[in-house]
């Protein structure tokens, strides 16, 4: 099945089985390996990308649904100020350990901050619970979301 869609602002056409998850199209056809595979069942969030502005689990997102859509991955996250703030906060606080889950964490954090510029602890916890981290970096993820939110608020003033 031929699919035309846009990834990080660049148009792409792929011809793959319609049930092929967006994850594998990104990783194998477009060689964008920043989007990670962790469970294949939308249970861990490592594969989170944005489709038309919505955070989705790309491992459970058949490519047929991506027809004519705008996809943003970690490789393109810094193209807007929220994404940039998230990535910078993650680096500033050395959130990563093994790092495998972190692109997905950043994609979720950016989706959260787009909807809520001042999330409290409960909102952060409830919005980030779909992203597993086996290394257990949760404390720093919370701090980084707070830092990104603070920097965005201050930058907007």
């Amino acid at each position: 099945m031929k699919i035309d869609f846009t990834v990080n602002g660049k148009p792409h056409t792929v011809d793959v089985a319609p049930d092929t998850p967006l994850l594998w199209v990104l990783r194998e056809h477009l060689e964008l390996t920043g989007t990670k595979f962790g469970c294949g069942r939308a249970l861990c969030g490592a594969c989170t990308v944005h489709v038309d502005g919505q955070a989705v689990r790309s491992c459970a997102y058949p490519i047929e649904y991506a027809q004519a859509s705008q996809v943003q991955t970690i490789e393109g996250l810094e193209s807007d100020r929220i994404g940039e703030a998230v990535v910078n906060a993650w680096i500033d606080l050395d959130v990563v350990q093994c790092g495998w889950c972190q692109p997905g964490q950043c994609m979720s954090a950016a989706a959260l901050l787009k909807a809520n510029q001042s999330p409290d602890r409960e909102a952060v916890d409830a919005s980030m619970s779909g992203n597993l981290c086996r290394c257990g970096t949760y404390s720093r993820i919370r701090q980084a979301v707070d830092l990104a939110a603070k920097n965005l608020r201050e930058g907007a003033e």
Partner: peptide
């Protein structure tokens, strides 16, 4: 000292085994 691998991991540039092509 900041981690040497933070930025590349966060940005999805760092190569893990499964990323190697």
């Amino acid at each position: 000292t900041p981690r040497v691998d933070s930025a590349d991991k966060v940005r999805g540039i760092a190569k893990f085994s499964l990323d190697q092509r």
